[in-house]
Design a protein around this nucleic acid. Structure first.
Lengths: 221, 221, 221, 221
DNA sequence: CATGAATGAGGATTCATTCAT
DNA sequence: TATGAATGAATCCTCATTCAT
């Protein structure tokens, strides 16, 4: 009984994941082209009607995908940041992590554009983390910043744009550390220190479980 | 005969402009919502079929709108830049002009996202002008820049992001000059000079003819 | 499960037949007039969209109708011919059967003209049977024919035209046996024999199953 | 004045012919595909609206084409038949003429199918001439025919079918005389006579004026 | 729960025809 | 008369969603 119940909910979760994964695949592989629910269910190898047992609406499925990816990104970043105490280090690591994610970031934006989600606030949850570091560093005298809000904006803009440019091949991979260095200097750190923080080895990223089931599979597909 | 011909092509151009204008209005007023061709023709007060005398496809109409706006922006910017010789001045003026255009810029991006044009290269024609100033200034010793390409990228990112934030109300209008100042300092100009350039009065912008017929009307609508 | 599957495919086949039938009716009842898909689905008492679950295009629906009729005609003819050994008898019977089918033949041609199928080869599958009898009879000395190919052509032409004329009421029903007699004489049979073969009772035609489900119903409609 | 008037009506006739010709070309070159009035006027190098100065409706233009071709065929045939007194000769010549026209006939039928004219009576105006010869010959004892109506039908069918088969390449050109011979024998003429009539040289066909202006041009195009 | 047949509102597109110039 | 811009009814086709099995 209980076992049966467990089996059932496990299966349910599996089907759900299959649908999310196949939705994600469809969006990535077909750009902005119209995606039909049949496309999705066929790719997931489920019956058409099954879709509606999991999502009330196509829109909601897209949002589930976004949530999924976002959670993965966030989880990974949190694991990395958690042990770091110094705001400058934390800041530097976060910057580099974000830039390194250029690829996923791209997909992420593709998705957002595609799904038509207007309020991109959630996209910038990690933006909050950067702002937090920034303010903490400013207060503690580690950074020299007049207007943290504006500075934060400038940084976000640079991050986003550099990510895209790297992705497009317009900038070399070295741009990641260079950008980080520029930004740290802009925060008033001496070039020596900026350079040092930039060269710090990225802590190994423990991949969260869910990534294994969806994104990793995807990457190897 | 000749007159007749002239009359016809004048009328054609009028109708075409009416369609472009109404397409633009629709995109702005309804965000990403589905726009139907009927919406467009109704707003333009023409018959449904008329649309197809001018654009083979909705997509092509969107692109015509983009071209139109782009031309206007470019024309205006060229008029402003033309008399300026000093790269730093030229650069500063261009920055401020771009930021001031936050509004149109926003529309511009909304359009691009909406229309789904992938290669945004054309969007950044003014980017080329900035890069050109940057390199000229670097060569002449006016700017201190290691890697103009990367620097240019960082600047573009900041511009784009700040434009959006101003538009959204997350940043005050003062961010325009502040951002310009930050950027000029990043190029190695002393704060004094940066501040001075920032406070230079914007040269009056002679509005190009075409704007009168479409955008201005639009702005007051 | 299995039952479910069976039920579904049975239903599918039913709907498909309903659509074919109603397409056929429409073509017959409206001549060359434009037939819309709505006409078809309304007559079949199905939703408009349903059509597209069965045929990608109107054209393909027409072809399905042709295939359907053709199969019925062929099946019936084969059943009749199968027991007959003598080529002259077989030939005579086939001729009369084809002429008797004047009605369907007419519809058949109307359909073909309407549907615009260019290669009418399939229409003449029974033509092949006639040619076969002709050559067999010539070889065995039963017929006297110089050029079987030409003779076959002449016969096909007569058949077709007489069918139409009977249908239109320009010729009496007696033309069936008269035409057959003419043709048999043209093949060198003595008038006595020709007459005898002509008056042979048509074997009763076991109506194939499919006719029951579609054409018969149609005939009574 | 008068001259002016003449000029005007000449021009009018020219334009009309240009439209008829281009309509004919369109039908032949594009098979059953939808032909638009624009296609026609463009091919005729006239303005779109001009069409309606000559034909009230597209359908009427098609019919004008049919009339045009029919007249040409008829005129030519009449010129040939006029000097012939003997019904057998007249009959033979007409048969051969019709078969020789296989090509135009094909176009003719294509047109009729396309234009959707149901009553093909006019197509068979020459059929009347054949019937007339037939009855005249039967009365005068030249032909031995029981039922002229049926016989006529059989002949019409053969003519039509053989024409098509020659056109398609399924029958050699020699089929023209062979068919004629078969038919004459069927009318009771001794094979010798039939053969002789068949080999009679076709009288030279004086091409009527209108053919020059439309069909000939077409043929060389 | 899974399934897929049925549905019809919605949107794109065509084109014969009108009419002002 | 010649022209071609304007028109909108007519039609095709898509696809999210429902629902009976």
């Amino acid at each position: 009984m209980n076992l049966n119940n467990n089996n059932n909910s496990r299966k349910r979760e599996q089907t759900r994941q299959a649908l999310i994964k196949s939705t994600y695949e469809q969006v990535l592989s077909r750009g902005g082209e119209k995606i039909t629910i049949q496309d999705i269910t066929e790719a997931a190898e489920v019956g058409l009607g099954t879709f509606y047992n999991y999502f009330e609406t196509k829109q909601l499925a897209f949002e589930a995908v976004l949530q999924d990816i976002h959670d993965q990104f966030s989880d990974a970043l949190n694991v990395i940041r958690q042990p770091l105490k110094d705001p400058a280090t934390s800041f530097a690591v976060t910057l580099q992590y974000c830039l390194t994610q250029a690829e996923d970031n791209r997909d992420w934006h593709a998705l957002i554009e595609f799904c038509g989600i207007r309020d991109q606030r959630q996209l910038y949850q990690n933006a909050d983390q950067l702002l937090h570091d920034l303010q903490r560093g400013a207060k503690g005298g580690r950074f020299k910043v007049d207007d943290p809000i504006l500075t934060h904006s400038l940084i976000m803009g640079m991050l986003r744009h550099v990510s895209l440019e790297i992705r497009k091949g317009n900038l070399a991979r070295s741009a990641i550390s260079e950008t980080t260095r520029h930004i740290l200097r802009m925060l008033g750190l001496p070039d020596q220190v900026a350079k040092a923080l930039t060269q710090m080895p990225m802590p190994p990223v423990p991949v969260p479980r869910r990534i294994e089931t969806s994104l990793t599979i995807l990457a190897t597909a």
